[in-house]
Simulated scan of single mutants.
Amino acid sequence: MIKKLFAILFFAGIGIFGTEIKAQTIDEIKQKQELFKIYSDLLDKNMDLAKERQTNVKLTEEVSVLNRKSDKKTDKFTSSDPKSTSSDAKNTAKLLKETESANRDLAKSNSRIKSIENDMKKIVAKMEKYDYAVEIKKK
């Protein structure tokens, strides 16, 4: 009788221990799966950041050219001929509007870059909460 009771308790203990091991591995798998999802979000944000930085470089060049043109146009105003002064003023106004628009686009681009960087910081903070790390192996 004692042998049967001992055998039953022994196998029950093994059964409980085995289910705990499976439960741990399932939790580990779930955490790793969530971690991979978060890591893929981080990679997407990284790609968005690279694209936005390229756009920002182009906008910066465009804005610097337009700013120089605007400075030259507004500095050299002559009032010798009323007709030419009027057309010069119209052209300068167009150039200034174009410059203002380009500067606004550059400011938006800078804002997007900051926003993406903040999102990336939040994602990295989420990743640090997990017990596991993502390792990427290159072939």
Rank of each mutant, 00 (worst) to 15 (best):
S115E: 04
K126P: 01
F77T: 03
K83L: 12
T92H: 03
K122P: 00
E100S: 12
K94C: 10
A107N: 10
F77W: 02
A107W: 07
T74D: 00
S111G: 14
N110L: 10
P82W: 07
A125I: 04
T78D: 10
A89Q: 11
A102R: 00
L106R: 04
S84I: 12
D88M: 05
E117V: 15
M120P: 02
K90D: 15
D119I: 04
L106T: 02
N91H: 14
K122D: 13
K129W: 11
K121I: 06
A125Q: 08
E98I: 02
S111E: 11
K108H: 06
R112D: 08
K126S: 05
S84M: 10
S101C: 03
I123N: 00
K76D: 01
S86D: 11
A102H: 06
T74K: 03
D105K: 13
I123L: 05
T74S: 07
K122L: 12
E117R: 09
T78N: 12
T78V: 14
L106H: 06
S111A: 15
S84N: 05
L96Q: 07
Y130D: 06
N103V: 14
E117K: 09
I113F: 02
D119V: 00
T92I: 04
L106A: 04
P82D: 12
V124W: 06
N110P: 00
